[in-house]
Design a protein around this nucleic acid. Structure first.
Lengths: 134, 134
DNA sequence: ACCTATAGATTACACTTGTAATCATCACTG
DNA sequence: CAGTGATGATTACAAGTGTAATCTATAGGT
């Protein structure tokens, strides 16, 4: 229920990608370079202490649970990624676009931030919607 | 360049709706009940001191300018609403959906948060896009 | 069995944010 | 002309955030 901060979200993100996971697993995942061909990718390095702090805060916020596994903990997210991202999306769209998703997409279109794949994905969504809502 | 907080955004929002405006204009606008038929609309009341603080912060952040008009100031936004909302949208979509807008829309669809109007708006966007991208 | 490296807990600390109250100045009112 | 009420400036202050360092207990190596 409490708010998840940006840094906390990134930690959760790492956990969602594979869980349950130990603090070290998560730290490793966070520091994995998201290598693409471009080398201007100087991904921030996460300091181990920082990640531990964030894990603690997430536990306090009941965004994840942990269970003792011999010496260390294994963490598991208590939030579903999809539910969380939807909530955040809706919140932004509510605040900025009166709850309508189309104006957001329109902004992307205007900026030339859509490609054929995006358009196809949207078309497919629409046809699904129409199938279910005759 | 600095970040605009949520509360600051709401103040900016009021200003975008009509500017230049005095602090009092803005406070009035913010406290205008966004009346709909539903009376469970107990819009938060903005305290005059609070709004003044936020205006000052926005000036410091160079999000708006002001000019002395006799005794009081007239404020004018320095950011365009559309540019700002686009930037925020892109940032969220980058963080949560790898930069792809379709998954966000898919979330809305899944939750039944789209209606015929939304679908039509999206279709129209798509056909415009296709017109410009053969 | 002891010492050390380590994992998690606790503490730190500056900056931002939400929310105002207080201070200083000045224009208008009686 | 003096007092008051408004306007903007300054100050306040707790909670949240990003970013760690220090403390404490303990598991594992020698």
């Amino acid at each position: 229920m409490t708010e998840i901060s940006n840094a906390e979200f990134e930690v959760l993100e790492a956990l969602w990608q594979n869980f349950p996971a130990s603090a070290n697993d998560i730290i490793a995942k966070l520091n994995e370079s998201t290598d693409g061909a471009d080398d201007k990718n100087q991904d921030k390095q996460w300091h181990d202490k920082t990640v531990k702090t964030l894990l603690n805060r997430l536990v306090k916020k009941q965004a994840l649970s942990f269970e003792k596994q011999q010496r260390h903990y294994l963490y598991t997210p208590l939030l579903e990624r999809e539910a969380y991202t939807l909530k955040e999306s809706k919140s932004l769209i509510e605040r900025m676009f009166s709850g309508k998703v189309a104006p957001l997409v329109a902004g992307f279109a205007k900026q030339n931030d859509l490609n054929k794949d995006d358009i196809n994905a949207l078309k497919s969504l629409i046809s699904d919607w129409e199938k279910n809502n005759d």
